[in-house]
Computed example of a mutant assay.
Amino acid sequence: MTVQAKICGINHPDAMEAAVQGGARYIGLVFYERSPRYVPPPTAAQLARLAPTGVRVVGLFVEPDDEFLERVVTNVPLDMIQLHGEEMPARVREIRETYGIEVMKAVKVADAADLDGAAAYQDVADRLLFDAKPPKNVAALPGGNGLSFDWTLLAGRTWTKPWMLSGGLTLDNVAEAVRATGATAVDVSSGVEDRPGHKVPAKIRDFLRVTGAL
């Protein structure tokens, strides 16, 4: 089994280089201003152009309005839009049809009922991403909090669309997470940082070396 990896929250050329050279299949650029990983569209455009053919650039948005989406999509070469807020299925469909770009919808998981809700997105999104539900405090971000969820909730589940596993993944636990869930694609952000928003190239390379061997 080949496990593909997405390095999310890239905001510096050094991190981009480490991800590309390490074999990342996806690169995530965060367009959510509250995040320490946020990149303004002009900077994001420069980073996106460093991604070679075969590495897909994913733009992460949280409940974006049409004006902001239009500005980013017009100026940044994205291969996929990731919706990481509370977007309803109709909004996911609308964005997918408007921009003609693949859309991946994040589903925040704390219990089995949260996974049941993912079914509504299978017909409107190209991919799903399962992430840990953020803690209930005002400082929590929609994602990238370094939290994992009970991976056994995904065991034996099947979906009509490809999916990624996210939430608290690190060099030390990603192999266990893949074994528990059957994931063929994983997404990491805080797990390759030494502080919020600061990617460590060596950690990126180490993470990709492990996932590349799974």
Rank of each mutant, 00 (worst) to 15 (best):
K105F: 12
A140W: 11
G85W: 06
D65R: 13
T74H: 12
I27Y: 04
A44I: 07
G117R: 10
G212T: 04
L60C: 09
R195W: 00
F61P: 00
P42Y: 10
S35L: 04
E102T: 06
G28T: 08
R34T: 02
V72H: 03
D126I: 10
W151T: 02
V210L: 08
P77Q: 09
E102V: 07
L115Y: 00
A44F: 04
L141Q: 15
G22F: 08
V55K: 01
A19D: 01
M104I: 15
S189D: 10
E17H: 12
P135E: 15
H198P: 00
V103P: 06
L141G: 07
D131M: 13
A118I: 03
V210T: 13
T152I: 00
P196H: 13
L47V: 05
I27F: 07
S35N: 02
R91C: 01
Y32R: 01
A48W: 14
F149Y: 14
K6M: 04
L154C: 04
I7K: 05
V103I: 13
V103H: 05
R127G: 00
P142Y: 11
L69W: 03
W163G: 01
G100K: 04
Y121F: 15
L47N: 06
F149V: 03
V174T: 06
Q21L: 11
Q122F: 06
Q122H: 04
G23S: 04
T43I: 09
R127N: 00
M104C: 12
D116K: 03
P36C: 13
N145G: 11
R37S: 11
L83C: 09
V76I: 06
E87W: 11
T2M: 08
V188Y: 05
L214D: 01
G28Y: 09
I10D: 01
G212I: 03
F61D: 03
E87P: 14
L169S: 04
P134Y: 09
L154M: 13
R34V: 02
K108C: 03
I81N: 07
L60P: 00
G156A: 01
L165Y: 05
A118P: 03
P196C: 12
A44E: 05
